[in-house]
Measured scan of single mutants.
Amino acid sequence: KRYRAVYDYSAADEDEVSFQDGDTIVNVQQIDDGWMYGTVERTGDTGMLPANYVEAI
């Protein structure tokens, strides 16, 4: 699945990823209600991200 960031996010922990509004997130997997795991296409960084900061595309 592919998602697009709708807000900027700065990683708060080493297992999270930072991204900017408009970034595409690929290979996304749902972890639980609030978190997903995926790769930021622009940077190649992979990690956890907050589900409410992205939307499906």
Rank of each mutant, 00 (worst) to 15 (best):
A5F: 03
N52I: 13
M48P: 01
V6G: 04
Q20G: 06
V26D: 05
Q20Y: 13
D32F: 12
N27D: 11
D33P: 10
V17M: 03
D15I: 11
I31R: 11
A56L: 15
V17P: 02
V6I: 15
V54K: 01
S10M: 13
D45W: 06
E14D: 12
Y37I: 12
L49I: 14
I25P: 01
R2H: 08
I57H: 07
T24Y: 15
D23T: 00
V17L: 07
G47P: 01
E14V: 13
I25T: 02
T39D: 02
V6M: 13
D15V: 10
E14F: 11
G34Q: 14
Y53I: 06
I57D: 08
V54H: 02
E14I: 12
V28I: 08
D15L: 13
R42N: 05
G38W: 01
W35Y: 07
D32A: 13
W35R: 08
R42V: 04
R42M: 04
I57K: 06
T43D: 02
A12G: 10
T43A: 02
Y37D: 03
I31C: 14
G44L: 05
T46M: 09
R2L: 10
D45T: 08
T39F: 04
Y3V: 06
Y53A: 14
G22V: 03
Y7A: 15
V26Y: 10
A51P: 05
Y9W: 06
M48E: 04
A5D: 00
F19V: 05
I57S: 06
G22H: 04
A12M: 13
Y3S: 00
Y37P: 02
Q20A: 09
G47S: 00
N52D: 11
A51C: 10
A12E: 11
I57T: 08
G22P: 02
D8G: 12
M36N: 04
D15W: 14
R42Q: 05
D21C: 15
T43I: 02
M36I: 12
N27M: 12
D32V: 13
Q20K: 14
S18Y: 03
E16V: 06
V40D: 01
E16A: 07
M36G: 02
D21H: 15
P50I: 04
G34C: 15
V26H: 07
F19K: 01
D21T: 15
G22T: 05
T39E: 07
Y37E: 05
D23H: 02
D23I: 02
E41C: 13
T24M: 13
I31W: 09
I57V: 10
Y37V: 10
N27T: 06
E41A: 08
M36T: 03
R2E: 07
Q29M: 13
D15Y: 14
N27H: 09
R4Q: 07
T39Q: 09
D32C: 14
D15N: 15
Y37W: 14
Y3P: 00
S10Q: 13
W35K: 06
T43L: 02
Q30N: 11
A11Q: 06
Y37T: 08
I25N: 01
A11N: 04
K1R: 12
Q20S: 10
A12C: 14
E16M: 08
V17K: 02
S10W: 13
G47R: 00
Y7G: 11
T24H: 10
Q20F: 13
A51K: 09
D45G: 07
Y3K: 01
V54E: 00
E16Y: 09
Y53K: 09
L49P: 01
I25L: 10
G34A: 14
V40G: 01
I25S: 03
A5E: 00
I31K: 09
D33L: 09
E16S: 07
T24G: 05
I25R: 00
E14Y: 10
S18Q: 03
I57F: 10
G34R: 14
D33M: 09
Y9V: 01
A56H: 10
I57A: 07
V54G: 01
E14A: 12
V26P: 00
A11C: 06
D23L: 03
L49R: 01
G38M: 02
K1Q: 12
S10D: 12
M36R: 03
V40L: 04
